[in-house]
Design a protein around this nucleic acid. Structure first.
Length: 837
RNA sequence: GCCUGGAUGGCGGAACUGGUAGACGCGUUGGACUCAAAAUCCAAUGAUCGCAAGGUCAUGAGAGUUCGAUUCUCUCUCCAGGCACCA
């Protein structure tokens, strides 16, 4: 029995229960699927269990579920899993401020969020739920880490790292945004720490090359951002041998990286970064050493990404030798040279590099022009560096050559003298994964005085987090205080040893979870190759743009490593990626501090999940920011009510047998409704294929308006058998097509229509092209490109007939009066443009 | 500075491959229903001139190509995002 009034509260819970009880959305392994359907793996970036879902989640999951349900109805074997990215700082901070154990806090949050998530009615395969903070999950991560270590892809080194003093932990470069911590937004400083790195740089070229495969399937901006982040540049490494002070002194060269080896003969100095390992050694006097310390301090004071206002520096007093010219080149230290890129030393070519130019001007260093434009004369003295290519001058044997092609030849000459080589330099650095915090997967390493750094043997995994730890927020990593945890024995020699207390960056968990979903309960390894082969790659991966250079890059890196280790196949983890926009309100991101937060729970309470979902998909195209608008939500709710009110009074139509179509006669008004119905199915299908959810929904609204329109003209329009048939067809099409968007109401109406099965299992309808087609069209008649009239014309009309008709239209006649018709442009099926002069 | 997107009514947004600009929704106004209100249904709704028929102007600005440009080309402005002494 269906109620007269649409009451989401009365129906949504029921259908959510039905779906779960019936295991409707539990994915069958493709090999066991009796229907042999093609697989479709749809994944939304899994949530961090903060305790409450927000509108961004609703939007994200509504998109994913809409795609999943649609694909399902199109005959795909759909996998849509869900899990929890459950390690991370907020849990530990809660422990510090409120005294709850991070684990307890996290588990409670998961329970709460699960409840909320269920209330949206997303078709998840709950059987595959993953929780990354459980040993079941992170033991495999530890196993993978050991393999990284064995293969030399994980290493520990002491280095200057980004340090967030508020989070008291290291941040990866990707996690520093505008000099601030990506999580807590406080200023990031630097600190020298010994930490674990994963060699993502080894895969830089592959990560870049993979973009070719993804072009057109991933958002261009994401590919562009990654490309910049990887930052490949072709250039040359050049050695400048130091001038020997004494015959006995060692001949250490200084290595520089340049993209312009063609300007080598324009070198008038060398500049080292203050932190360059040779800087101290090269300072010839105490005064220089003092200046070096000053410069080091200045650089340290600067925030990451901040530029110095002036290019300051000093001459060390030492010289090196030009690798091809044999002249002395003074060695300077400059505040503008960054240690982290290239070799931390640059050759100074003031005539052809703007920074070197400024530095030379500042310190009165000579400027030597070696590249001149081919067509025009260079105005000297230069007022700025000439950075274009051109013809080489004053460049020894290379003078007169084209600067571009000389790059290779100069590199050859250097190579012969063992003083340089062509190379490729990346901006991408290795991924620092050590975190000096408790709530993360422990790095499974043991330090032994005798055996050194020893990975924990596989049979001893997982290394679980000790529960008995106090969280004071002071004194660094709580694990350091957990003596039972720290003190252990060396697995090799059985002597007392210490455990590593660093935990892994949570981005490590999210780098492989998508593949674990293929075999989430597999207990012989992280992945069951058979299953990963069946399900991967993820066909559609949906999440926020903020992960462009973090998660999406890390996961691609992991995938390539896992492929090399034969855990899975394929070069890319995510065939298609979709970055949805943010949910904003009054032009600003929803946040507690701005007081503009609308909670999903409040919307579901007032209007139901179907309305919340429908609005998230209707209000804006998915890739754009969505401006939350309460009135707009009401509008979507009204639409669902309108649908319901259309169905209810006619519900009996569905309990009676329908006459067959060819026994019926449809008048023009009914045909118009039929045409709209089939037009809607076509539009829905096209738009869903193209992920244009907003216009798909508007098509359904148009059909509803069409039916209401006829009813208001004639309330008996649908009472005769032919009317019954047309309304039946319209309503059933609406319900089926809206099922991916607002599944609960559609299940309810579907059941009320007398169907035995679930709409979740229904088949997506086809449309009748013959019913959409009409044999007339509206001819637009223009005069000189301006629309002057419109007239209904049969499609059979010939061009001549149409031109004659158009020229005879009274409005047209008045516009072309007294003028000469020069041309008539005719676009079949569309318009006639009469050109007059 | 460099890169990538954008800019369309009062608002969110539509517009196939260059062919009726403004679908759909919100808001607003009017009407029906009602004792009244809410809800609902119907209608109107880019600006401007006009009693009207109808005209004129309109897709950030300016040019160009074209019979015809929101769509293609060039220049510029503004907005959002990303990167940034990267040698």
């Amino acid at each position: 029995m269906i109620s007269e009034k649409y009451d989401p509260k009365a129906i949504e819970g029921k259908w959510q229960w039905t779906w779960e009880q019936g295991k409707v959305f539990e994915a069958k392994d493709p090999s066991e699927d009796p229907k042999k359907r093609p697989k479709f793996y749809c994944l939304c970036m899994f949530p961090y269990p903060s305790g409450a879902i927000h509108m961004g989640h609703v939007r994200n999951y509504s998109i994913g579920d809409c795609i999943s349900r649609y694909k399902r109805m199109r005959g795909f074997n759909v996998l849509q899993p869900i899990g929890w990215d459950a390690f991370g700082l907020p849990a530990e901070n809660a422990a510090i401020s409120r005294g709850v154990h991070p684990k307890e806090w996290t588990i409670l949050n998961i329970a709460q969020m699960k409840k909320e998530l269920r209330s949206i009615g997303i078709g998840y395969d709950w059987n595959r739920e993953l929780t990354t903070c459980l040993p079941d999950y992170y033991r495999w991560e530890q196993q993978l880490f050991n393999r990284f270590f064995r293969e030399g892809l994980a290493y520990k080194k002491k280095s200057l790292v980004n340090w967030c003093s508020s989070c008291e932990t290291v941040l990866a470069n990707e996690q520093v945004q505008d000099g601030k911590c990506w999580r807590c937004d406080s200023e990031v400083g630097t600190k020298e720490v010994s930490q674990w790195y994963l060699k993502i740089t080894l895969y830089a070229d592959q990560l870049l090359a993979g973009h070719e495969q993804l072009r057109g399937l991933w958002p261009e901006r994401v590919l562009e951002m990654q490309k910049h982040w990887i930052g490949r540049s072709e250039g040359c490494r050049i050695l400048f041998p130091l001038e020997k002070k004494k015959e006995s002194s060692a001949n250490i060269p200084i290595e520089v990286f340049t993209t312009r080896p063609d300007t080598l003969f324009g070198v008038t100095f060398l500049t080292l970064a203050p932190a360059h390992p040779l800087a101290d050694h090269l300072c010839t006097g105490d005064e220089q050493k003092k200046q070096l310390e000053e410069l080091k301090k200045e650089v340290a004071r600067r925030n990451p990404g901040e530029e110095a206002t002036t290019k300051t520096g000093f001459f060390t007093g030492s010289y090196c030798i030009h690798p091809l010219g044999n002249q002395r080149v003074p060695i300077w230290v400059g505040n503008f040279v960054v240690m982290e890129y290239g070799t931390g030393a640059v050759m100074g070519v003031p005539a052809h590099d703007q920074r070197d130019f400024e530095f030379a001007k500042q310190h009165g260093l000579p400027i030597r022009t070696v590249v001149v434009p081919k067509s025009k004369k260079l105005n000297e003295p230069l007022t700025e560096a000439y950075v274009e290519s051109g013809e080489l001058v004053d460049s020894g044997p290379f003078s007169g050559q084209d600067s571009e092609s000389s790059k290779r030849q100069i590199a050859e000459a250097l190579k012969k003298k063992n003083l340089g080589n062509l190379t490729i330099q990346y901006k991408l650095r290795d991924w620092g994964i050590s975190r000096q915090r408790y709530w993360g997967a422990p790095v499974p390493i043991i330090y032994c005085a005798k055996c050194g750094t020893v990975p924990v043997p596989e049979e001893d995994l997982p290394v679980t987090l000790p529960e008995n730890v106090s969280f004071t927020g002071k004194g660094g990593n709580p694990l350091d205080q957990a003596t039972d945890f720290v003190n252990t024995v060396c697995p090799r020699c059985n002597e007392p040893a210490r455990r590593e207390t660093d935990t892994m960056d949570t981005f490590v968990e999210s780098s492989w979870y998508y593949a674990r979903f293929a075999s989430p309960h597999y207990d012989k390894g992280p992945f069951d190759r058979k299953k990963t082969d069946q399900w991967l790659p993820v066909d559609c991966y949906i999440g926020g743009i903020e992960h462009a250079c973090m998660h999406l890059l890390y996961a691609r890196f992991f995938h390539k490593v896992l492929r090399d280790w034969e855990y899975l196949s394929g070069d890319e983890p995510f065939a298609r990626q979709f970055s949805q926009g943010m949910v904003v309100k009054d032009g600003a991101k929803m946040s507690k501090s701005k007081g503009n937060v609308v909670t999903p729970a409040s919307i579901i309470d007032r209007f139901g999940a179907d309305t919340a979902r429908l609005f998230s998909l209707f209000a804006a195209p998915p890739e754009k920011d969505l401006d939350w608008n309460d009135k707009g939500v009401e509008g979507c709710h009204r639409f669902l009510q309108r649908l319901w009110r259309l169905f209810y009074p006619f519900r009996d139509i569905f309990s009676r047998p329908l006459p067959s179509e060819n026994e019926l006669h449809f008048d023009d008004r009914l045909l118009k409704v039929r045409r709209k119905t089939h037009w809607m199915i076509r539009k829905m299908t096209d738009d869903l294929e193209a992920e244009k959810f907003n216009t798909a929904i508007s098509a359904a609204m148009e059909l509803v308006n069409e039916v209401y329109g006829l009813l208001s003209e004639d309330e008996k329009a649908f009472t005769a058998p032919s009317g019954n048939f047309v309304l039946h067809e319209a309503l059933q099409s609406l319900v089926v097509c809206l099922a991916p968007f607002s599944p609960h109401i559609c299940e309810e109406l579907w059941a009320a229509m007398g169907h035995k099965g679930l709409i979740a299992d229904a088949v997506w309808p086809g449309f009748r092209a013959d019913l959409i087609a009409v044999d007339t069209f509206l001819l637009v008649v223009q005069v000189n490109g301006k629309v002057r009239d419109r007239v209904e014309v049969t499609k059979q009309a010939t061009q001549q007939e149409i031109e004659k008709l158009a020229l005879a239209l009274p409005k047209i006649v008045s516009h072309i009066q007294g003028k000469k018709v020069r041309q008539v442009v005719y676009v079949p099926g569309r318009l006639a443009n009469i050109v007059v002069a």
